[in-house]
Design a protein around this nucleic acid. Structure first.
Lengths: 197, 197
DNA sequence: AGAGTTTGGAACCATTCAGTACAATACACG
DNA sequence: CGTGTATTGTACTGAATGGTTCCAAACTCT
C-alpha cells in the first residue's frame, strides 16, 4: 500500500541518543543528528516531527535504557544486600569513565544546561531523576544496615546518593584530573558503612 | 595623553560575570554581553580582546569573588569548629536558592557544559574546583571530629563534599522540585556527624 | 497500474554570529 | 591651544548556521 520506511525507528532513536548524549540538546545541530542517524532532513521531520520532539523520544529511550539499567542494578534481587548494589552502581560508573566514556549522564547534563527552560523537557528530566532516586531508596530498603532507618532518614540518604551521583557524572564529563572518580567508590562505601553518631 | 575609558574595567567584568553566570559561555551572545555590560562592540573588543578572553577574566573574577567567599567561610577562624563552617556554607547555598537564586554555580555549569573542550577554560575551571576542595579540606582540619583522621580519609571526605556541592548546585540550577535542597543542610550535617563504623 | 508513503535534497528565511573598519569624539599634556 | 593618543559608536562584514518546509521522484504493495 505504501513505501515502507527504510530505517528502523528504534535504531534511529538509539543513534540520536548517542548524538544528544555526546553534545547535549542545544549544541546538537540538525546536521549532527542527520549524520549520526544516517538519514536526511525529510525523513527526520516526517518521522519525528521536529528536533525537540525527537529529544523527548530520546529522553524516553534513555530512561528505559540507561536509567533502567541503573535501576535494575539497584533492585537486583540476586544481590541480597542493597548496600552492595549501590556500590556496584558507582563502581560501574567509575569503570565506564576509566574505559574512556566521558559522556557523563544525559539527564545530568540536561539538568545543568539551558534546555530546562522548556517545561516538557524539564518534566522528562525530572522524571528520570526521580527514577534514580527511587532506585537508591529501594536498594537502601534492602540493606541490613539501613532497613531499620526511619523513612525520612532513608529518603534523605537516597537524596545524598542522588546528589553524589549527579556530581560524579558532571565531574566525569568535565574530564578534570581531580582524582575524585578514582576513589569515589571507596567514599560511597564508607558513606554507607557509617552510622549515625 | 589620551582619552580615558568611560567605563570601569572591573565593573564591566562584574557585569559580564552576571551575564555568563545566567546563561553560560556558549549561550551568551555578544549582544547579551553588550546589553549587560552597557558598552558597545568596539569598546568590548578594544578592552577585552574577544569573548573567550573576557570569559577567562570573568572566571578569574568569579574565583576571587564567589569561590573566595566560599573559601573564606570554610577557613573563617571566628568559627572554631570547621564542621560548622561547612554546614554554614551549604546553608548559605540553600538560602540563596530559597531566595530565588537559581543560577547555580558558574564553575559547575561550565564543568557540565561543552566549553570544557577549550583547554584554557578547562584549566581555569579546574583551578576553581581545586580551590573549593582545598577549602573543605581546611575546614575538616579544623573540625575536632575529623582532625584526627588520616590524611587520605580527610581528602576523600573533602572530595565527597565537593561532589555533593556540585550536585546540589546543578540541582539548584535545574529548578526541579525534588525537595533535595530543602534538606541538604541536614544531610550534610549528618554526613559530618557520622563516624567510621 | 494506482494508491499511498517515504525519501533526498534543494530552497527557505530568518537569525545570529564574532569580529572589523573607521570616523567622530574626548581627554591630557606640552 | 593644539596635537597626539585612546576610546567610542555604528555601520558593516560576510559567513554560517539554524530549524523547518516542500516537492518531485522512488518505492511497495494491492
Amino acid at each position: 500500500m505504501a513505501r515502507p520506511r527504510e530505517f528502523d525507528t528504534d535504531d534511529a532513536i538509539k543513534r540520536a541518543t548517542a548524538v544528544f548524549w555526546e553534545k547535549g540538546f542545544l549544541e546538537s545541530s540538525l546536521p549532527d543528528l542527520l549524520d549520526g542517524m544516517g538519514l536526511t532532513r525529510g525523513s527526520l521531520y516526517k518521522a519525528f516531527k521536529d528536533k525537540k520532539n525527537l529529544f523527548l523520544l530520546v529522553l524516553e529511550h534513555y530512561e528505559e535504557e540507561a536509567v533502567g539499567a541503573a535501576k535494575a542494578r539497584l533492585t537486583d534481587a540476586d544481590v541480597p544486600d542493597g548496600r552492595e548494589r549501590i556500590i556496584s552502581l558507582f563502581a560501574a560508573l567509575c569503570a565506564a569513565v576509566t574505559a574512556g566514556d566521558t559522556r557523563g549522564c544525559l539527564l545530568c547534563s540536561a539538568a545543568a544546561g539551558f534546555e530546562m527552560s522548556d517545561p516538557e523537557i524539564a518534566g522528562a528530566v525530572e522524571k528520570g531523576m526521580r527514577g534514580i532516586r527511587d532506585g537508591f531508596e529501594a536498594a537502601l530498603r534492602a540493606s541490613p544496615t539501613h532497613r531499620a532507618l526511619p523513612d525520612a532518614e532513608r529518603k534523605a540518604l537516597a537524596n545524598v546518593l542522588l546528589t553524589q551521583y549527579i556530581g560524579l557524572r558532571v565531574l566525569a564529563r568535565s574530564r578534570m584530573p581531580l582524582g575524585i572518580l578514582e576513589q569515589s567508590v571507596e567514599s560511597v562505601a564508607r558513606l554507607l558503612d557509617m552510622e549515625p553518631a
